[in-house]
């Protein structure tokens, strides 16, 4: 019953919102140029996909996102495991991790543009910088919070450090890694959008910027919707993946 109520009320409020929005624009209370309307946005979305001009932007943004994100995962997960495992390495790297964590990485854009130009690679770097930190920090804290008892048991049975690392530390870190990956999705999308708003020649963020500068408000909304949908889809995908791993993960704490 409550589940139904939740769906009813949720859909209801969204519908009311959309209707009011549509009514405000239809009645010309506010210029459609400023506010657009749900139907205008739907039509603009349909046209963009029907004409096919959007595919190029989608491809460019997608490439930037995927390369930057995978690069970040490829660096952050091994590095996080290593930094979590070797205390001295952590001491050496922690100032840099802390500083990077404190800087909004998008503030580095002007420098990144000087270094890599306004093409795809500057965005890849921004995405990488945005995504690498949450992934790294979560992997790190995953290693740090390994169940003390498991380590003690393994050590008393004379397990080698390598064996302990692979069969206790790494599996225990998996949920943390997923948290990091999910969190990084938002940062990576932010990187793509801001990078393309700031300086680009193609991409969804570029589409939004150009549409905004030419007062095509409906197109701006289409771009934003595409980005939102992408974010939700990626996180959902990661959730599914995480549940698969969940099955063979040791149930920590349940067998105390």
């Amino acid at each position: 019953m409550t589940e139904h109520e939740r769906a009813f009320i949720g859909t209801g409020s969204v519908l009311v919102f959309l209707l009011v929005w549509e009514a405000v624009t239809l009645s010309r209370l506010v210029d459609p140029l400023f506010l657009s309307s749900p139907t205008l946005i739907a039509r603009a979305g349909y046209e963009l996909f029907a004409e096919g001009t959007i595919w190029k932007d989608l491809r460019v943004s997608g490439t930037e996102f995927v390369i930057g994100y995978l690069l970040a995962a490829g660096v952050a997960i091994p590095l996080g495991l290593a930094v979590g495992w070797y205390r001295r390495l952590y001491f050496c790297l922690s100032p840099f991790i802390d500083v990077l964590n404190a800087v909004p990485r998008v503030a580095l854009l002007p420098i990144i543009i000087i270094w890599f130009g306004i093409g795809v690679w500057s965005k890849v770097v921004v995405v990488f910088l945005g995504a690498v930190i949450p992934m790294l920090l979560n992997t790190l804290s995953g290693v740090k919070t390994t169940e003390e008892r498991f380590l003690k048991v393994a050590r008393s049975f004379g397990a080698s450090e390598l064996k302990i690392f692979w069969s206790i530390v790494v599996p225990g870190t998996v949920p943390f890694i997923f948290t990091g990956l999910k969190y990084a999705t938002g940062r990576a999308l932010l990187g793509v959008v801001v990078g393309e708003l700031y300086a680009a020649t193609a991409g969804i963020g570029y589409l939004i910027a150009v549409a905004g500068a030419t007062f095509q408000t409906d197109k701006v909304f289409v771009g934003i919707l595409i980005i939102t949908t992408t974010g939700i889809l990626v996180v959902e995908l990661l959730n599914r993946l995480e549940r698969r791993f969940e099955e063979w993960r040791p149930k920590v704490g349940s067998a105390t």
Partner: peptide, 30 residues
């Protein structure tokens, strides 16, 4: 208020999933 939560939940999740800076071009227009 549970019902109030149900009503604003979709908007919160949608805004949460959107990088709000993507709204900049709109905000500048406004």
């Amino acid at each position: 208020y549970r019902r109030f939560c149900f009503a604003i939940e979709p908007f919160l999740s949608a805004l949460n999933a959107t990088p709000r800076v993507a709204l900049l071009p709109l905000i500048i227009i406004w």
